[in-house]
Every structure is written in structure tokens, then in C-alpha cells.
Write a protein that binds this DNA or RNA. Structure first.
Lengths: 105, 105
DNA sequence: CGTATAGTCAACCAATAAGTTGACTTTGAG
DNA sequence: CTCAAAGTCAACTTATTGGTTGACTATACG
């Protein structure tokens, strides 16, 4: 599995995306992250492990608590991959130009 | 599986991303797509099926050949999700927090 | 001290993913 | 008509995913 594989795989689960959304607001403990979900803490811990293995989240221990925070770099790589094809998704260059013009006027 | 789940899952495989990269250059038949890979045509066909189920690729039959082409919308949704956090990795923590809190209320 | 909290770990389960092969259908070309 | 190419389909294998539970360790608190 490449870095990009791991990043996209990590993002392909709604629970993990919700965790990322929460962490975007700031650091959180594992139990803070787990409480909103209707699943065991172990399950959430596994999701965090997936995010951590993908490099999207770092975990540091303070006392008995593990605090998680977002790591930017791999998500930027994923975004870069996607935006490299943006001109193709928006169709022809003409329609892309029209799209941009429509936003600016 | 939500649309976003499917899109990110589809993108989490290197073979499928290579298929997308090729399709970004234009329409291609299944056997054209399969030839560069060291795996059976059936396997590539399955990958195309995953992309097609996720809505990233459309397949049309002409004669005995299936032609594949890229579809924009779901990839745009994935990009939109990621770029919502772009401020995070560019360093503007506060504006991102405002953005997300705005979504939740 | 004793106990509750934060979390890990190992074992297990069911479902899905990624690949294979072999038999088959449909279509184009000689 | 005959044959090769394009592709599907079903069956199978192996590995991974996402979840569970129960036992355990480590830390904080009254």
C-alpha cells in the first residue's frame, strides 16, 4: 500500500471522516472522539489507528489520556492528486472558462 | 456506503487511479485499459466496475467493445470535502474552525 | 489504600476486496 | 461459415476490514 492508497482508504469511511472533522476543531482525546458513536471504544480506537497509520493523525500520551491531532501533509497529497485532474472533470477548457467567468461576473 | 465512501474507496487503489489517469487522456476500451497491467482482464474489468459503481466512470458498448470515460461529479464532491480542510494545512486554523462550526448549526 | 477512568491487547466473527481460472456469449473479419 | 477478439459470469481462494467481547495495564482521585 502506498501513502496515497492509505490516505484514500482512510478517508473512505464515514466514521473516520467524522473523526477528522472533529479533530479539525482541535485536539481531542480518544474517549472524546468515541462518545458520539454507537460503537465500542475499541472500534473507535481502531479507526484512529488507521488514521494514524496513514499519517493523518498523530497521537500523544499525557497521563492516562491519548490526545489526537490532525496532520496535514498526506491530505494535501490526496488533494493534489485530485486537483491535478480538475480540468478534466470540469469538461472541456471552454466550459471550464465559462465556469470561471460565471463565478467572476 | 455513501457516495463519498465509494468515491474515496475507489480512489484508494493504485490500479484504479492509473485507470483514471489513462481515462483523463480520453476514452479507452476495457482491453486498452487492461493491457498495461500484469493481471487478468477480468480483474481490470472488476476495477472498472468499482469505478463505475462509484459513478466515476461510464461505460458504453459499441459493437463488441466497451468504451470507458471519466465522470466528473463524484470526484468533485471528494475534492470539495478535502478542500474544506485546505485552510487547515495551509495554517489558518481559526477560519477552518469557523467554517466547520457554521456547518454544524 | 481502593476504585473508577483511559486505553490496549488478543481472540474471534461476518462481510468484503482483490485476484484467479474456466466456460460462456457476442461481435467483427477473412 | 469459421475463428479470434472483447468481454461477462460464476465459482473459488486468500487477505483485509470493521466490528465485538473479555481480560489486562496504567493512571488519577477520594
Amino acid at each position: 500500500m502506498t501513502q496515497l492508497d492509505q490516505t484514500f482508504a482512510a478517508l473512505s469511511d464515514g466514521t473516520r471522516r467524522a473523526i477528522i472533522e472533529k479533530l479539525a476543531l482541535g485536539e481531542a482525546s480518544l474517549s472524546d472522539l468515541a462518545s458520539p458513536f454507537d460503537m465500542s471504544q475499541t472500534a473507535v480506537s481502531k479507526h484512529v489507528r488507521v488514521l494514524s497509520d496513514a499519517g493523518l493523525v498523530s497521537v500523544t500520551k499525557r497521563g492516562r489520556t491519548r490526545y489526537c491531532s490532525l496532520q496535514a501533509a498526506p491530505m494535501k497529497d490526496a488533494t493534489d492528486w485530485l486537483t491535478a485532474y480538475q480540468t478534466f472533470w470540469t469538461g472541456s477548457f471552454e466550459s471550464l472558462a465559462r465556469h470561471i467567468e460565471g463565478k467572476e461576473h
